[in-house]
Simulated assay, not measured.
Amino acid sequence: MNTLSYGLLALLTANSLSGYELTQSIKPLWRAGHSQIYPLLVSMEQKGYISYERIEQTDKPDKKIYTITEAGLEQLREWVETPADPPVLRDELHFKLYSLWLARPEEAKALLVRRAEFCRSELDRYNLMIKANEALCQERGETRELTATTFGRYLLLRKRVMDMESSVAFCEWAIGELESNAVPLE
């Protein structure tokens, strides 16, 4: 199994989801499309890590709602306890920053402004998700203890908030550097 497979299993520990819902849910965590996810679902179902219930629909094709099995939960448990690989960093902005000297000053600034706006919008979204996670925690009578099923989601959301805050701070700093002509472009 690959990392994406484990990610899908992880999402299924919270709720049973359709393939489409899994694809949407994984977007903030991992870049993957339908063409990657659906074959993995078939493979994991064949291995007994997930099961599905077919839901008949009159106006659309039937959909499958996937649920993690005990075997899938055990597989995920074993994987969670193994060391994580070093992070893979893929951000197009990094190459653009490296070549920023080729950009007109106003376009260089616009690039950073757009990234900061995106990060602020993500910050808002993640903060809403944290509130929803806290409400779910209260609803289940859980605290933020290590054993709470919502604790890992809370940690991940907090990490994403910190990442976005850091990115906004970087963009604001870099814009300041451009505006002060600390690095002449052109």
Rank of each mutant, 00 (worst) to 15 (best):
R153Q: 13
Y154A: 03
L128R: 15
L112D: 06
S166V: 09
T149F: 05
F118Q: 13
M164R: 09
C119R: 10
T149N: 08
E134K: 00
E139C: 04
Y154Q: 05
E139T: 14
T147Q: 05
Q138P: 02
N133T: 08
E117K: 10
T150L: 03
A132C: 03
K131D: 15
R153D: 06
V113P: 01
R120E: 15
V113L: 07
S121R: 09
A132L: 13
E145V: 07
D124A: 14
L123Y: 08
S167F: 04
E145H: 04
D163R: 01
L156T: 11
T143S: 11
S121C: 07
A135N: 07
A148G: 15
E117I: 04
L123I: 09
L123A: 03
L128W: 13
M164Y: 13
R160S: 06
E142N: 02
E139I: 00
N133L: 03
E145M: 02
E145R: 02
M129R: 15
A135G: 00
D124H: 09
K159F: 14
F118S: 14
V113Y: 07
E122V: 04
N127G: 14
D163C: 03
E117R: 11
T147L: 11
L123V: 02
E145A: 08
K131A: 13
A135M: 04
R125N: 08
F151C: 06
Q138A: 13
E117F: 01
M162P: 08
L157E: 10
S121W: 13
E134T: 01
R158A: 07
R158D: 07
C137S: 15
T143D: 14
G141W: 03
Q138Y: 10
K131C: 07
L157M: 04
K159I: 13
G141C: 00
R140Q: 08
L146R: 09
R120M: 12
V161I: 14
R144Q: 14
C119D: 13
T143N: 11
V161D: 05
T143K: 06
R153G: 00
L136S: 10
R115V: 05
E117C: 12
R114P: 07
L157D: 01
D163I: 14
E142M: 10
L128Q: 13
L136T: 04
E145I: 08
S166K: 03
E134S: 00
D124Y: 13
E134G: 00
T143M: 09
V161W: 09
C137R: 15
S167H: 02
E145L: 08
R125G: 07
A132I: 02
E139M: 03
C119G: 05
G152N: 02
E139D: 14
A116H: 01
E117P: 11
D124M: 10
K131H: 11
Y126L: 06
S167I: 00
A135R: 14
Y126M: 06
E139Y: 14
R160Q: 11
C119P: 00
L157N: 02
F151H: 01
V168A: 02
C137F: 01
T150Q: 01
M162G: 12
